[in-house]
C-alpha cells in the first residue's frame, strides 16, 4: 500500500538577517502511509524550498536532534507520523521557550550550561584501576536510576515546562533528571556536590509539578518524578543539617 496523499505542512520561518518576527509558510507535501513529519520536512527541503532550516540526524528517536512543536505539542518529528494528522494540516514550530536561531533551529546553549552544572558523570568514592575489577551493582540498584539514564537531551521537556519559560534560571527537567540519575547510582559518591544545585531556588524548588515534561518525554524518563522526589531529599537536607555536628558536611 503506497497510496500518495497531499497534506498541508505549515512551517514557522524566521531569518535572523531579515526578520524581526517569525511568520508561517505553507507547503503541499505528498506523503505515504509510513512517512514521518521529519520526512515531510525533508521533502520540503529537497523538492520545494531548500532554504528551510531544521536539525535532524538519526531518524529513529535516539539522537534527540529533531524536536519541534507539532500542532503545539513538543514532539520528535521522526517519531510522529503525517498519517495521524491527515486530512488536517500540520503546523510545525521550533521548540517553545528557547531562542530561535533560524526557522526550526533553536539555541540550546542555556541547556548545555545547566547540564554541566549538575555534574552528569559518575564521581566514585575511590577510583578503581582496571586491575581491581568492575563496580558491582544489583538489578534493584540499577532499577533505581536506569529510566533516568535514558534521556537523549532532546529538550521536549523544556519546551513542555512553563516554569522554564517563565524563569530561564530554573535548572529544568532534563538536567535535574540527569542529576538524579547520578545521585541514585550506587557507584556514585557525588551527591553532596550536586545537593547545592538541588537546594537552590532554581533547583528542584523552581518546579510546580505541572508534570507535562513527563507526558511528552519520548523515552519514559519521567523528569517530574526525578525532581519531585528530590524535594523530599532537599527538605531532609534542610532540617537534618541542624542535627549534625558543627563543621560536619
Amino acid at each position: 500500500m503506497t497510496t500518495t496523499r497531499i497534506i498541508e505542512i505549515e512551517c514557522q520561518r524566521f531569518n535572523p538577517q531579515t526578520d524581526s518576527e517569525p511568520h508561517f509558510q505553507s507547503y503541499q507535501v505528498p506523503f505515504s502511509e509510513e512517512m514521518s513529519v521529519l520526512q515531510g520536512l525533508q521533502y520540503i527541503k529537497d523538492h520545494l524550498d531548500g532554504s528551510l532550516t531544521f536539525r535532524w540526524s538519526c531518524r529513529m528517536a535516539i539522537c534527540g536532534s529533531c524536536g519541534s512543536m507539532v500542532n503545539g505539542v513538543p514532539q520528535l518529528s521522526c517519531h510522529t507520523f503525517l498519517r495521524d494528522y491527515f486530512p488536517d494540516k500540520v503546523r510545525i514550530e521550533p521548540l517553545n521557550h528557547f531562542p530561535v536561531l533560524r526557522d526550526l533551529a533553536i539555541d540550546q546553549t542555556d541547556f548545555l550550561a545547566k547540564l554541566e552544572s549538575v555534574k552528569p558523570y559518575l564521581i566514585p568514592d575511590t577510583e578503581k584501576t582496571p586491575a581491581q575489577g568492575t563496580y558491582l551493582q544489583t538489578p534493584q540498584q540499577m532499577d533505581e536510576y536506569y529510566q533516568y539514564s535514558e534521556c537523549i537531551n532532546c529538550l521536549l521537556c523544556y519546551a513542555a515546562c512553563p516554569q522554564y519559560g517563565l524563569n530561564k534560571e530554573f535548572t529544568g527537567p532534563a538536567a535535574l533528571a540527569l542529576l538524579h540519575r547520578y545521585n541514585a547510582d550506587s557507584r556514585d559518591a557525588g551527591s553532596a556536590e550536586r545537593m547545592e544545585v538541588i537546594n537552590g531556588e532554581n533547583g528542584v524548588w523552581g518546579c510546580t509539578l505541572v508534570s507535562y515534561c513527563s507526558e511528552v518525554c519520548p523515552k519514559g524518563v519521567d523528569p517530574a518524578r526525578a525532581i519531585n522526589q528530590n524535594k523530599i531529599n532537599s527538605t531532609k537536607d534542610y532540617f537534618l543539617r541542624f542535627l549534625q555536628p558543627r563543621g560536619g558536611k
Binding site: 538577517q17 518576527e21 503545539g72 505539542v73 519559560g165 517563565l166 507535562y212
Partner: peptide
C-alpha cells in the same frame, strides 16, 4: 547579524494546551 534571536513571549501560555488549563 546571525546573533539576532527570536524568543516567543509567554503571554497567555496556559491557553496554548489543554494540559496547562487543567494545571
Amino acid at each position: 547579524n546571525l546573533l539576532n534571536r527570536y524568543t516567543r513571549p509567554m503571554e497567555g501560555w496556559w491557553r496554548r494546551n489543554p494540559f496547562y488549563l487543567w494545571y
